[in-house]
Design a binder for these strands. Structure first.
Lengths: 215, 215
DNA sequence: CCCCGATCGTTCGGCAACGAACGATATCCC
DNA sequence: GGGATATCGTTCGTTGCCGAACGATCGGGG
């Protein structure tokens, strides 16, 4: 397939911003097709997250991260904190703070691992369980709403395409040539005690800026 | 890994997390199809952003927000800060901090609006211009990489589906209708299936003006 | 002129998030 | 056994990000 000029059908769908970008950069050899696909992922994600925070989570005074932590504990039950951190996509340090907040509100309970004094187990309190059982159905209702302009087949297609993008990045090493990235298992050696290493929970958050520091 | 024997074509593709969820919640009337579609948006976005920060932005000591600000100034030229805030999807308060950082590194320049002492104009410095012209091609190269497991037609399809989701949420009213809130004008048009004319810049963190806090 | 409301950018408090450093605990190996 | 090493969660410093409060500035009306 040759790189073709912008078709009118696609042009009609472009946002003003996307048209401006082509007006500004159109003469340079950028990959506008990939740019549209990838950047719209980010845009949709922030839109969805803001929607959820405003419509559902705000009412219960839950942050996104607090919700994801409770959700993980709901699905998988009592967990070691390191598993929760991996599953929610946060660092250990962040999780400590989130758990402190949740514990102060008596939504989760911490306890020391009986066989290993270094580890800490965390689980939902009865109160936390009641909250998540009330919140999640509403959350899922908003997911239905968000996807409601897509047909069922399109929803499946969207999930399918997104999984391929995630797998590409998670498995690959970047622009540097790699092979068979999609099917690889990069999780060898990681002991996560019954939790999948390669695929985090759906509502993972590792979004705010890190500053990997150059210099 | 490619075995299909779980009842549906999609089942073979589910991550372990997604299978566990169905094992835990499968007897409840949730919309698992929408859940897969929407939650994978968030997961892919997190993956993409982390990838970009580590692979490209980190080398230049740029945060994601700093990059988006510079990118907006690159495409649209000198802007009033309120426009930059709207375009990058941050609040005024956040932008102040980001601009302060960028200005301290001499990547952007601030100046008072000649006709209105309240407003502030911001533009790229020559140094900032050099940086973004060096960074963006690499950024776009990583977008190409991220999308490289998709065919061109699939990339277009992905962008198309995501635009429909974003438009639904940005223009729609949600499950529990809210009006007023005002602040931003989500374009006329209302609920037409998918074409979005008032979208912000691609790499935005979308933010709505008024957030009805609980209690 | 001068007040009044509106607008704009900054400041501030609070939470989230990261990486690095740290102390405590467990395990390995001689 | 006992010291070196590894692992785990917490603490610490910095940045991002938000909403609210604030001071400065502009415009209109009396």
């Amino acid at each position: 397939m040759t790189t073709r000029r912008l078709g009118s059908a696609e042009a009609a769908e472009l946002s003003r911003a996307e048209r401006d970008i082509r007006a500004r950069l159109g003469d340079r050899p950028f990959d506008f097709r990939a740019m549209a696909a990838i950047s719209n992922i980010y845009r949709a994600a922030t839109t969805v997250r803001n929607h959820m925070e405003q419509r559902v989570l705000g009412e219960y005074d839950l942050s996104w991260s607090a919700f994801t932590v409770m959700w993980v504990l709901w699905i998988w039950g009592e967990q070691e904190t390191r598993h929760v951190a991996a599953e929610t996509g946060t660092t250990k340090g962040t999780l400590t703070g989130v758990l402190k907040t949740l514990e102060s509100r008596r939504l989760v309970l911490r306890s020391v691992h009986p066989d290993d004094g270094r580890r800490v187990l965390v689980r939902l309190s009865p109160r936390g369980l009641a909250i998540i059982e009330e919140v999640f159905p509403r959350f899922n209702g908003e997911e239905t709403f968000a996807a409601s302009t897509l047909t069922p087949a399109e929803q499946d297609q969207l999930a399918h395409l997104l999984r391929k993008v995630s797998a590409r990045i998670e498995g690959g090493t970047g622009v540097a040539p790699i092979e068979a990235a999609a099917g690889r298992d990069p999780g060898a050696g990681g002991d996560r005690g019954g939790v999948d290493t390669t695929a985090p929970a759906p509502y993972v958050r590792r979004q705010t800026t890190t500053r990997p520091r150059a210099s």
